[in-house]
């Protein structure tokens, strides 16, 4: 990154994003958000973060602080489908841990979902399973979001139904 090499397309686009946000309120957050959206796998690569730090002059450690603080930011490539299980107190008492384990069984990634918390992308990059501390939908507990759609009062049976579509596709494709 000494200025002589030509920048990849992604880094050029990031430059555009940075120019757009320069001087605006919440500059760094805005830049990072849009940079992540630019990325096909919806994540912030190290190269992208280096570039943002270099161009904005924000210290690398500070960039890291921000991207690890907000759960919106991903440091790893995201699967095509996003499954988010709420692990808040209400959902927990209504059995969200078991749901998480079910997902692990159905998608074949049981080991990675052990501690009642998860952030896992299946090796084929099809699914990302994550947990949140609370969706704010406690009345509907337990809550699972699949590709942005919130499903309430989820049971093992409904979960199986919901995931069937995916796993079928997965098996047949």
């Amino acid at each position: 990154m000494d200025g002589t090499e030509t920048l990849s397309k992604e880094l050029q686009e990031i430059d555009g994003v940075i120019t757009k946000h320069r001087g605006k309120h919440g500059e760094l957050l805005g830049i990072l958000e849009e940079t992540q959206l630019l990325n096909e796998a919806q994540f912030l690569s190290e190269e992208a973060l280096n570039h943002v730090a270099l161009r904005t002059g924000v210290p690398l450690s500070r960039v890291y602080n921000v991207v690890t603080f907000y759960s919106f930011f991903n440091l790893k490539p995201q699967g095509k489908h996003k499954i988010t299980v709420c692990r808040g107190t209400a959902c927990h008492t209504k059995g969200s841990k078991a749901l998480l384990e079910d997902i692990g069984l159905i998608l074949g990634c049981g080991k990675a979902l052990e501690d009642g918390e998860a952030f896992y992308t299946t090796p084929d990059n099809e699914y990302t399973i994550s947990t949140v501390a609370c969706f704010g939908q406690c009345a509907l507990a337990p809550v699972v979001a699949i590709d942005g759609v919130i499903h309430s009062n989820v049971t093992t049976a409904t979960l199986q139904k919901l995931l069937k579509k995916f796993s079928k596709r997965r098996i047949t494709s």
């Binding site: 190290e46 973060l49 210290p59 690398l60 450690s61 500070r62 960039v63 890291y64 602080n65 690890t68 603080f69 440091l75 501390a133």
Partner: peptide, 27 residues
């Protein structure tokens, strides 16, 4: 120098170097 900063949040909050590279691998 800003070699270190807080990272993550809640119970996972910790003092980190960039991408957990370690003090010997950052500025």
């Amino acid at each position: 120098v800003h070699a270190i900063s807080l990272s993550n949040r809640g119970i996972k909050t910790r003092v980190s170097t960039y991408m957990e590279k370690g003090l010997g691998n950052v500025a």
